[in-house]
Design a protein around this nucleic acid. Structure first.
Lengths: 201, 201
DNA sequence: CGCCGAGTTGAACTGAATCAAGAAACGTGG
DNA sequence: CCACGTTTCTTGATTCAGTTCAACTCGGCG
C-alpha cells in the first residue's frame, strides 16, 4: 500500500496508529475510472467515501431543463463523497464523474463508522469533513449573492490554484455560474491587466 | 406549557411520549426579543436550538465591505439554529436577529443530545434537520448559479409563501442576491402580468 | 490531411445595478 | 388620534456586466 498517496495522507493528517491504518486498508478498494466515467449517478445511494489517488472529478446536478450545475471539484489527495448518501443514507441528487483518468480508493462507510465510534480522533476528522462542506456551501452562497463574475473567479483560483490548470474552462464557468464565453473574457482581461502591472513594477 | 405552539409541534411531529416532552420542557427556556435584537452574534458559539413561538428572525453575515448577506429566514412554528455552533461547537460566522417582536423557546443542546442518544426517533429528527439544511444550501447554490432574479423570487415565494408578506423587501432582495429596486420591479411586473391573465381567463 | 471539440473574439442585446427623486407606510410623541 | 419625521417602497433614466449568437482559431487525433 505504500505506493499510494492515501497512505501518506493518513500518516500525515489523521494520526491513526499502524493497526488502524491496516484496518482501513483491508476494507478499502482501489478502482480506476476513465475520463467521463461515473463514480455515482443521481438517484443512487452511495455509502462510500472516495479518496482520489490520481486524476480529477466533479460533482454536479442536472436541472429539469437539462442544464448542468457544478457543485464541486476534487483532485488527487482530496477526500470526496456524496454527503447525502454518506452522512444521511439518502439518494444522491448529484452525479460524480471523472474528468480525467482517475484512481480512487473506496472506503466502505460501515468501516469508517466503526472507526468513528471507536476513535475520538477519527470522529473529529469525520465531523470536520461535514463542517467544512457546510462552510464551503455557505461561503459559496454569499459569493453568488453579491460578488461579480470576476470576483468569484479570483476567489476560486485563490482557493484552488491547481484546478483551473487542468479542468475544462466550461466546467469552471458552470461552477461559477457564468457562461464559458464570459469566463474566457474575464481571463483575458486579467492576463492583460497582469501584463501591465508587471511591466510597470 | 399548553399555550405554546411548541407543544403542538412536538405532539404532532416528533412522537415523543409525555415524559420525554416533559424533560424537554423542563430544560427549555422562553425568551422575548424585540425587533432588531440579536439572538446570536458573529463569533459567539451557540449551543442552543431555537423554536420560534411568535415572530420572525433572519440569519445573515456581514462581509469585509460591510454588506449583509442573508442566509435564511424563520417564522413561528419553525426550528432554527446556528448549525456551526449546534452541530459542530464552532463559533458562528452569522448573526441571528429578530425581524419582529419574537418569542423563542430555547433548547439546551446538551438535553437535545441526551434525547438524541436515547431515542431513535429524536436522533432521526436531528439528522433530518441537518440534512434539510444541506439540501437547502445546495439547492440555493444551483438557483443562484443559473436562475434569473425573477425565477429565484418565484421559487422563494413558492417555497415560503408567508414570508414575503411580513418581512421587509430589502431583506428578501438580500436573500435573493439582488437590489431592493430590482425586487420592486420584479414584483410589479408579476402583479401586472397576473392582472392580465386573470382578466383574460 | 482534415475533422472535431474547446477556447476566443466580436457585435448586438438584455437583465439587473446604480443614482436620484418621489410616494407610501409606519411608529412615535405630542 | 393626528402630525411628524423616518424608513421603506416605487418609479424613471442611465449605465454596465454578462448573455447570446455567430464566426473564427487553435491544438489534438484519427
Amino acid at each position: 500500500m505504500n505506493e499510494f498517496i492515501f497512505d501518506d495522507y493518513l500518516r500525515s493528517n489523521v494520526l491513526l496508529d499502524a493497526e488502524q491504518r491496516d484496518i482501513l486498508f483491508r476494507h478499502s478498494l482501489v478502482r480506476e475510472f476513465r475520463r467521463g466515467e461515473f463514480l455515482l449517478r443521481e438517484g443512487e445511494t452511495c455509502a462510500h467515501r472516495f479518496f482520489i489517488e490520481r486524476g480529477a472529478v466533479r460533482e454536479y446536478s442536472i436541472d429539469p431543463k437539462g442544464r448542468e450545475h457544478l457543485l464541486l471539484f476534487a483532485v488527487e489527495g482530496w477526500f470526496l463523497m456524496n454527503v447525502e448518501g454518506v452522512f444521511f443514507g439518502k439518494p444522491s441528487s448529484y452525479f460524480i464523474q471523472a474528468i480525467e483518468a482517475t484512481r480512487i480508493v473506496l472506503l466502505d462507510e460501515r468501516q469508517v463508522c466503526r472507526l468513528t465510534r471507536e476513535d475520538k480522533v477519527f470522529e473529529e476528522l469525520n465531523r470536520n469533513l461535514l463542517y467544512e462542506h457546510i462552510r464551503m456551501l455557505q461561503a459559496r452562497i454569499t459569493l453568488l449573492q453579491a460578488a461579480s463574475a470576476e470576483e468569484r473567479y479570483l476567489d476560486f483560483v485563490q482557493a484552488f490554484p491547481e484546478i483551473p490548470l487542468r479542468v475544462p474552462q466550461a466546467m469552471i464557468a458552470s461552477y461559477l455560474g457564468i457562461t464559458p464565453e464570459s469566463l474566457s473574457r474575464i481571463r483575458s482581461d486579467l492576463a492583460r491587466r497582469n501584463a501591465c502591472t508587471r511591466r510597470s513594477s
